[in-house]
Design a protein around this nucleic acid. Structure first.
Lengths: 333, 333
DNA sequence: CGTAAAATTGCAAGCGGTTACAGCGAACAC
DNA sequence: GTGTTCGCTGTAACCGCTTGCAATTTTACG
């Protein structure tokens, strides 16, 4: 089932069928109708591979994320996909599980697919990968990278401000001695930057405070597991600041299992403001990160960059808002 | 950057390069090495479109799901993807949001991509779509469809048994008068079948019982919203049976907001046993649906079907297990 | 009605691979 | 030494679609 059959049935050439399919308005109305009818009659659907091979471009964007299980990433992908569909584009998603080798494989795959644009929203990105991406001939959007390379767009969270707001609020509640930072993969720069921002913020507010780091996987179980490790250490924090909401929910669970009341005994904060953070018990104090806006920006850059190749790099900084809910309260002395 | 450049650099023909790339072991070792080196030197990556166009097949499976936001679907997709990667296949995912038109578009898109196999794990599937899929020339796996068509594989949950177990347990706890069924999209056959199974089960156990239906969207907010509607109706159930865990978590939240204690005032059950159901508060009594096993079956059928075209339809029935947690308790009289 | 301009349509050359088939040495048997 | 076989490599015909360019038909207009 191919163009030729359709062309034959409509008594035109394949070129004309192609023109009809691509909405080139150079085809006469009556011819167009004949072609449309043939397409419908034969229940024809174009071979997308042939299409993008011949056209030299595809109507597909690629998005690579670190952990699609975490609703934070899912929400962004979802938004990008919605906007892409509105404009007749498709989106192909890849998940790296925070593995640099998987990231590389995914990038290669996307390149092999000749995507019209690529968003790599991952923390595990390395300088050499950035280098490779910067020479791609399609727009590229990155997340939270510090390098301000040419013709790459970077979207990042103002984590310094996030941590200042969070620290300021916790300090106001009396948390000024022992704070736990509960994160994942500190070896990746963007993530350790977040932690450092928290430490700096507390250093300024309460020079005697200690921020201790605990790490686990970016999953519910990761938060749970890490909390258990924390509890079995000598360190007894009055507040646990989590790298994201997803892990924080695991933290809440572990604390409840141990009979540690939140926020009466320990305060817990998240980061992202995923939907679940309003649905857990207690609800989670967190920092709102607008995934819709991020998704919108990502799409816009991919789209405009792929339409007009004069794609110049730029940076978008997302400003956070503190969302106070039930999981934080006055520090127990 | 194409085969020809690589071939030129390695001083061989494109055919030989292609043979190296496809691991045909007909190339002499020394030639192979030369080609490999050229590939590495040029940082060459094959154009996947050209590849699947020429080969007439792709190493990509398609999966279409109703709601990727719901971890139930995500878990299955994740499993299929993992197995596919192990075998050198890729997976492209599409989300329908329970919209039949979107399902049709996605199927067409997958057909256009000439996928090696397609899993349509959606509730909103219609007979005409099944008809269309049954004539596809690649293996197709469906979820929960009743039609037992040729050369389609069907995986389904034994919802009758699920509901019997759930109803039996609730009845044992004294829930035998007013039960709420909280679901979504009852207009779709597979979903209304579930509800009917529950009604039948209760009818058998307690002929005087009333099972009333409430519906909303398959989201956290959907569960929340529907619960509010239920609460503002005159019906006061002693147990709320939810179509899935995802919605049930929204239910728990709504009840807590209204000061209705679970399980003291009302019992709540879910279905699926997603991770979150162990991390919410109270933890959720539910029915375990093994996504790993489903994903494994789906992959196996897609894979074996695409390798050996003698793909005959078959049915896999998943047997459920009751998982008792905190959200259920004795009925309040 | 003739003719130039404009609107359609067809031809055919790719796009970047795969693969059937042919070609070509070298190894082997006689 | 010659005919065969075998192992490897090259040639070229696709795969299904897009698109520049040429050819053809319409339309506009004097």
């Amino acid at each position: 089932m191919n163009l030729e059959e359709v062309a034959h049935r409509a008594r035109v050439s394949t070129a004309t069928v192609s023109r009809v399919l691509n909405n080139k308005n150079v085809v006469r109305g009556s011819t167009r109708d004949r072609v449309m009818k043939a397409i419908a009659d034969l229940n024809y659907h174009p071979n997308l591979h042939a299409r993008s091979l011949a056209a030299g471009r595809s109507h597909t964007f690629g998005i690579i994320v670190s952990n699609l299980e975490n609703p934070f990433f899912y929400d962004i992908v979802n938004k990008v996909e919605a906007e892409a569909h509105n404009r007749g584009y498709e989106v192909v998603v890849a998940n790296t599980d925070y593995r640099p080798d998987q990231l590389l494989k995914s990038i290669r795959l996307m390149a092999g697919r000749r995507v019209a644009g690529l968003a790599a929203l991952v923390s595990e990105i390395q300088p050499d990968i950035i280098e490779e991406l910067s020479s791609a001939n399609f727009p590229v959007v990155l997340w939270d990278v510090s390098t301000d390379h040419q013709n790459l767009t970077n979207v990042r969270l103002n984590y310094r401000k996030s941590m200042e707001k969070l620290a300021g609020y916790l300090h106001m509640l009396g948390h000024s001695k022992r704070i736990a930072w509960l994160g994942h993969h500190v070896e990746f720069t963007p993530l350790s930057d977040r932690r450092d921002a928290l430490i700096d913020a507390f250093q300024l507010l309460a020079p005697n405070s200690e921020v201790r780091t605990f790490t686990g996987r970016d999953t519910l179980e990761g938060g749970w597991q890490t909390t258990r490790e924390m509890l079995s250490s000598a360190f007894e924090p009055t507040a646990v600041v989590c790298a994201n909401d997803f892990m924080a929910i695991g933290v809440l669970r572990a604390l409840r299992e141990e009979g540690i009341a939140v926020p009466q005994h320990v305060s817990v904060t998240g980061l992202d403001n995923i939907k679940f953070s309003q649905f857990c018990n207690p609800t989670l104090t967190t920092v709102h990160v607008p995934r819709d806006r991020i998704g919108h920006i990502v799409f816009e850059k991919l789209f405009s960059g792929s339409e007009t190749p004069a794609c110049h790099g730029s940076e978008f900084v997302i400003d956070p808002d503190l969302v106070i809910r039930e999981s934080t309260g006055p520090a127990r002395l």
